[in-house]
């Protein structure tokens, strides 16, 4: 296996059996995925798509029913495969009565870091994640956002090659989410592989080089952002008109694919192939005031929704 592939998943199947009647709930239905080393890779999809299940199998917390998974070239079921890997669980929780420094030192010892390295790295990490004012506090007194920062710190601790982050922006405020985005950028620039899951596609779009869409346990698309957005006819002109009077002009409205009222003004979204000039001329003739004309690029969210609609 090439070392350039950081994560390889082949024909991964997992079905949960719930309740006394062992009701079958399929979570993954033959997932195939390759993540190249050095990428910031978004593993995207709605809640219940199977993202966390796939990640848990990669980390060795769950056993697959069928299929193979590799981390940095090693079968992920072997604990040694996790030697150069860091993992952040979704909405993590930690020991109530430990202080963050004690917890990080514990994690470092489990990762094989020596005492001197820990002595230098733990305080520096606490400062980096902004938790040094709370370093004497037991973690049961931490907010959701603070716990997420502890989770990030434990992932950064051993400076691994591969980061697997399950919903890293979960539970964070806008400042925290911005901080995570910057961190993902920075890790990407340092040549680390970052594999992160998210159901908030708009935020994922801002940080990933490549993405895969998971829906009902199946991969429905994978590629670089450019490929994913380029494959769709994603561009459309938007004409913003002052007030709502334009809605009374049926002829103008017919030129648009969509008419939306936004903040007291009216937004005319044109078909992907349509040009805005006829609309602008018609507005001028009707004596309506134009606010702006802009070319809208489809977002990952638009692409994802179209793909899901196509899947039925």
């Amino acid at each position: 296996m090439s070392e350039a592939i950081a994560i390889r998943i082949r024909d991964l199947h997992k079905t949960f059996h719930l309740g006394l009647r062992r009701k079958k709930v399929p979570a993954l239905l033959g997932l195939d995925l390759d993540v190249r080393a050095g990428q910031v890779f978004g593993f995207l999809g709605p809640n219940g798509a199977g993202k966390t299940t796939a990640i848990k199998i990669l980390i060795g917390l769950l056993r697959a029913d069928r299929g193979e998974t590799f981390l940095l070239g090693r079968p992920s079921a072997h604990c040694r495969a996790r030697a150069r890997v860091a993992y952040l669980p979704e909405l993590p929780d930690f020991y109530d009565y430990l202080r963050p420094g004690e917890f990080l030192a514990h994690c470092g010892r489990l990762s094989g870091l020596d005492r001197d390295t820990l002595r230098a790295r733990v305080p520096a990490l606490l400062e980096r994640v902004g938790l040094n004012p709370a370093e004497r506090r037991p973690m049961r007194k931490f907010s959701r956002g603070m716990l997420q920062r502890v989770g990030i710190a434990q992932a950064l601790l051993a400076d691994p090659e591969l980061y697997i982050l399950d919903e890293p922006m979960g539970g964070l405020d806008p400042i925290g989410r911005r901080w995570i985005k910057d961190l993902l950028h920075e890790l990407g620039e340092r040549g680390k592989t970052v594999f992160f899951s998210s159901h908030v596609l708009a935020e994922a779009e801002a940080v990933c080089d490549e993405a895969a869409f998971l829906f009902r346990g199946r991969l429905i698309a994978q590629g670089s952002l450019h490929e994913l957005l380029g494959h769709e006819q994603q561009q459309a002109w938007e004409v913003l008109v002052e007030g709502e009077a334009v809605r009374e002009h049926e002829a103008i409205c017919k030129l648009a694919a969509e008419v939306q009222v936004a903040g007291g003004d009216t937004l005319l979204v044109l078909d992907a192939e349509a040009r805005p000039e006829p609309v602008v001329t018609a507005l001028a003739q009707a004596g309506l005031r134009l606010r702006s004309v802009s070319l809208r690029h489809a977002s990952l969210e638009d692409v994802f929704i179209r793909r899901v609609e196509r899947e039925g």
Binding site: I59, L61, C79, V85, P89, F94, Y95, L110, G112
Partner: peptide, 14 residues
């Protein structure tokens, strides 16, 4: 239940 052990078992220990 609280996923505390995920941070432990995701490290290279059996």
């Amino acid at each position: 239940r609280r996923k505390t052990l995920y941070a432990v078992l995701s490290r290279p220990i059996p």
